[in-house]
């Protein structure tokens, strides 16, 4: 191929820029830049170190989940239990430590194991029954939501974890999950931001550079053909559900150890936000197409808009309307950029 001449029409007209723009995440990237510039120019505090750290923090936990959900969506499935999972794992660790005095690291491990088991159960049910994952995980979502409330209330008599900071060795996992670097005048970059970057990088590497990545695209693109060419469909799908569950655990820990509390309703309602961020980032609802870094840009857009509205001083009653309009705008821009890139050969 290195000897191919300019006469070969397959490689001739495609410039580097249009190649980049054709990636699924390109539109979200452009939208993120536009939104950043908009708020940076129209408000005083948005682009300062203090301002940036608030929207980076807000984006980070959503971003970690959106990346995991994006992998699953590329593989052709949904996980609606992802939001409640963040509350479930946080509550579990909180209860085990504050009520039963379990060693904090053991509690964290127990939560991870349970989360993975629930993820595996989701995958198992979807694969064995052939029911849409939308329905199966909706079921686990409601189950978890009920367990989070009833279980917490039954075990500790209240509906939020209190007194977590007094648990022995609390500082160790806090360093890992909840600490922050000071940045600039009044900013602080939390551990969750680094976890977010790490998760995005690993997911991108898996998708782009490994065999497992190829499997994921094949699963969502055409499951039957994937099976025929030797992709271990059953194992791969279960692995994907376990990945979102593990991400839920990670976000649960990040929330618990940053704020030292989790409520029975933590994470409920977030599951759609994750899916929205993945879609804004270029994932197709039908599967087989998308990117991990796109989901990260989607989360960044969501986080920036959420806080940007606050910095702009707009009436918060309109928050959801602005958010919806901006997300729609981001998706439309996303679509437009990709179309243009595909046409401009």
């Amino acid at each position: 191929m290195s000897t191919a001449t300019a006469a070969d029409e397959r490689i001739s007209g495609s410039s580097k820029i249009s190649k980049v723009l054709k990636r699924p995440e390109s539109g979200a990237m452009v939208a993120a830049i536009v939104i950043f510039l908009w708020f940076a120019l129209t408000t005083d505090a948005f682009a300062t170190s203090g301002g940036s750290s608030t929207w980076l923090l807000g984006s980070s936990t959503i971003g970690i989940m959106a990346v995991a959900v994006a992998l699953l969506m590329i593989g052709g499935e949904f996980d609606l239990s992802a939001g409640a999972m963040t509350g479930f794992t946080g509550l579990l660790v909180g209860i085990l430590c504050t009520e039963y005095g379990l060693n904090i690291w053991v509690a964290i491990l127990v939560a991870l194991v349970l989360a993975l088991a629930i993820g595996a159960l989701n995958g198992f049910l979807v694969m064995k029954t052939g029911l849409p994952s939308f329905i199966v995980t909706l079921g686990t979502f409601f189950v978890l939501q009920g367990v989070n409330l009833a279980g917490t209330k039954a075990l500790i008599g209240q509906v939020a974890i209190q007194g977590m900071a007094k648990v022995p060795y609390y500082d160790q996992p806090r360093t890992l999950f909840g600490s922050a670097f000071t940045w600039g005048e009044n900013g602080s970059v939390y551990a969750s931001v680094f976890w977010w970057v790490g998760v995005t990088a690993i997911a991108t590497w898996i998708l782009m550079r490994t065999r497992v990545g190829n499997w994921i695209f094949a699963l969502g693109g055409a499951q039957q053909s994937a099976r025929q060419v030797g992709v271990p469909v059953f194992k791969a799908k279960i692995g994907l559900f376990m990945t979102t569950a593990a991400a839920g655990w990670l976000v649960g820990m990040l929330t618990l150890f940053r704020t030292s509390t989790v409520q029975a309703n933590t994470g409920v309602g977030q599951e759609f936000i994750y899916i929205i961020c993945a879609v804004v980032g270029g994932c197709l609802l039908t599967g087989g197409y998308g990117s991990a870094i796109g989901a990260t840009f989607g989360a960044l857009i969501y986080g920036m808009v959420n806080q940007g509205i606050v910095y702009s001083g707009w009436d918060s009653n309109w928050l959801k309307t602005f958010l919806g309009a901006m997300l729609l705008g981001a998706v439309l821009l996303n679509e437009w950029v990709r179309r243009r890139a595909e046409q401009s050969r």
Binding site: D44, A45, T48, G50, G51, S53, T54, L57, G58, N186, G187, T259, Q307, V310, Y311
Partner: peptide
């Protein structure tokens, strides 16, 4: 708490 951080930054 992020909203409080935002107010401090502002």
């Amino acid at each position: 708490s992020q909203l409080i951080d935002s107010a401090v930054a502002s």
